[in-house]
Structure formats: structure tokens, C-alpha cells
Amino acid sequence: MIKFDGIAAFVATAEAGSISAASRRLGLAKSVVSERLAELERILGTKLIQRTTRKLSLTENGQTFLPRAQRILREADEAAAELAARSGKLAGPLRLSAPVSFGILHLAPALTKFIQEHPQIEVSVELDDRFVDAAAGGFDAVLRHGAIGDSRLIARRLATSRRLLVASPAYLEREGHPASIDELQHHCGILYSMREGDWRFSTEHGWQVVRPKAALRANNGLVMREAAMAGLGITLLPTFFIHEAVKSGVLVPIDVGARAEGAELFITYPRDHGASAKIRALADSLQRSFGNPPYWDRLAS
């Protein structure tokens, strides 16, 4: 008979990429994880993992078995969570991924409230600005900015954010205040490097894209904010990055007569197992923490 702990050891090893990393995730000795993997392979009568001195990889049978094994673990965890929810308590692991800057600025305090509300939920969060595949990355849920174009995922909107053009008072005194979209073309921009045509404005003729000369390209909003505060140029950022700097006057909003495209925050999870009670509770808690409209938009006004 297949043992549940063997399936857990296999999934953790496949997702983490090594037995050592899996042992840390599971809180077990490396030898215990290896023994459970060996026992699972013996019961199934096939090799699931190809081990060499330099790397670990899944065999063809391991690749076939992995999504089913992940589903078994999810369904068992969700079943336990549903039973706990019936008794008024949510419990068990909840593994999340979120963008680095948003995680530091806003998710961390909101998660603290959630954990205080549900102390038996074991939250694990990994911050990463790269695209994280919620359907295949072993996460229960992923927080993402922007539209979700993946049919394998379900997305629930948590909050919105205005995006403002801002610059330091020193930059604007030196280079002048652009008064129109066309004048932006002649200024230095601090641009987000992961998306082309990021400066989009709604006009009476539709969306207009501005591509100013780049003083800096970065894939992190905090880096962009710091560069703008240092006077390197104009940047366009969601208010959840700049609300305090705008309120204090360190950054000054720029009105060019058109509204910039907004930003949205979603929580996403794989379609094949839906939203567990824990994910629903997390989403509800985060929405309460952020508010509607969110506090960063209110403070930036």
C-alpha cells in the first residue's frame, strides 16, 4: 500500500529540486526523506527520481506521477481544512508566493493579522519578482500584479491601485513640469524593465503609450522609487509604492491631463483544486486589511 508520507517526500523533492531542500521543507532528516522515496519507488515498482552526483531529475514515470501526487496532497489538505472549518478552526500548511516589494511593504503586516486570526494555519511565504507558476510551482496561492492570462488559474481581485507619474522636487525644478503627454517624451524616465509600453494613458482617442528616454530600467518598484527620489527622472508607479513619499512631499505627482492605466492585485490558485477554505479566508482577510478603496490610494490623495 502506498504511504502518504512517501508521496509527500516525493512531491517535496520534485518541487524543491533536491533531497536536502525537501528535508528542510518537511522538517525531516535527509536520510528519512531518502528512505521514504526509496520505499515509494519499491511499492510502485518503478524509478521516479534519477539521482546523480551533480543533479536530480524526474524520470518519465516520475513526471507522470507528480501532478497526481500533488493533487492527492492538496485534496487531503483541503479535506482536513474543511473539517477544521466545520469546527470553527482552520489549520494546516498554506504556501504562498508574492512580489518582493509589495510583500515587504503591505503583505507582511496583513499576513500578521491573518495569522493572528487563524493561529493554527502554518503560513509559508516566498517573495519573488519573477513569474511564479501557481499551477506547477507547488504553491497553494500566488499574489500577482496585473491581468492573469492563464486558463489553468482562477484569479480573485484583492485590491486596485492608481498609478501616478511622480518626480522629486529637485528634478522638476531642474527640468521643468511636463504639462502634457507629448512633453513627457522629452523627459528622462525611470522605467519598469519587465514590460514594454508600460506608460499608458487614457485619452479621448483611446490609450496612448509614452516611451521616454530611459534614465534607468529596473524590475523592482522600490528601486524605481528610490531613483525618482534621488532626482534621476520621472517614474510611473502604483500608489502602493509611493503613497508615503507623495504624502510627505518627497515625490510630487505630475498632471499631464490624462489618467494613467491603473494596477490591480490578484490572488491566484490552480483551477483544478479550486479555492480551499484557507485561501478564501486569506483573501477575505487581505481585502479587509487593504480596504476598499485601499489605504494606499487614500493616503496618496
Rank of each mutant, 00 (worst) to 15 (best):
G6S: 03
A8V: 04
A9D: 06
G17M: 03
S18F: 03
S18G: 04
A21W: 06
A29P: 09
A29I: 12
S31N: 13
V32F: 00
V32W: 09
R36Y: 04
L37A: 06
L40W: 08
E41W: 05
E41C: 01
T46F: 04
L48P: 08
I49P: 01
I49N: 04
N61E: 15
L66T: 13
I72T: 14
A76T: 14
A76D: 10
L83H: 12
A85S: 12
R86M: 11
L90P: 05
G92V: 08
S101Y: 10
G103T: 05
L105A: 09
L105Y: 11
H106E: 05
A108K: 14
A110C: 02
L111C: 01
H118F: 11
P119R: 09
E122L: 13
L127A: 03
D129I: 08
D133W: 04
A136V: 12
G137W: 01
G137Y: 08
G137Q: 01
G138P: 00
D140A: 00
D140T: 08
L143K: 07
H145P: 12
A147G: 08
I148M: 05
I154C: 10
I154W: 02
A159M: 02
T160E: 01
T160V: 10
T160F: 07
S161H: 06
S168P: 02
P169S: 04
E173T: 14
G176T: 01
H177E: 13
A179L: 13
S180A: 01
S180V: 06
I181H: 02
E183L: 07
I190T: 03
M194C: 13
R195Q: 15
F201L: 07
H205S: 15
H205F: 13
L216K: 12
R217M: 11
N219Q: 13
R225A: 10
M229K: 14
L232D: 03
L232N: 08
I234P: 04
L236V: 06
P238T: 04
T239Q: 01
F240K: 07
H243F: 02
K247I: 03
S248Y: 07
V252L: 05
I254L: 05
D255S: 10
V256W: 06
G257T: 07
G262D: 13
A263K: 00
L265P: 08
P270H: 04
R271W: 09
D272E: 14
A275N: 10
A277P: 11
A277F: 04
A281E: 05
A283H: 05
S285P: 08
R288D: 08
G291D: 09
P293F: 03
P294Y: 00
W296V: 03
D297H: 07
D297I: 09
R298G: 10
S301V: 14
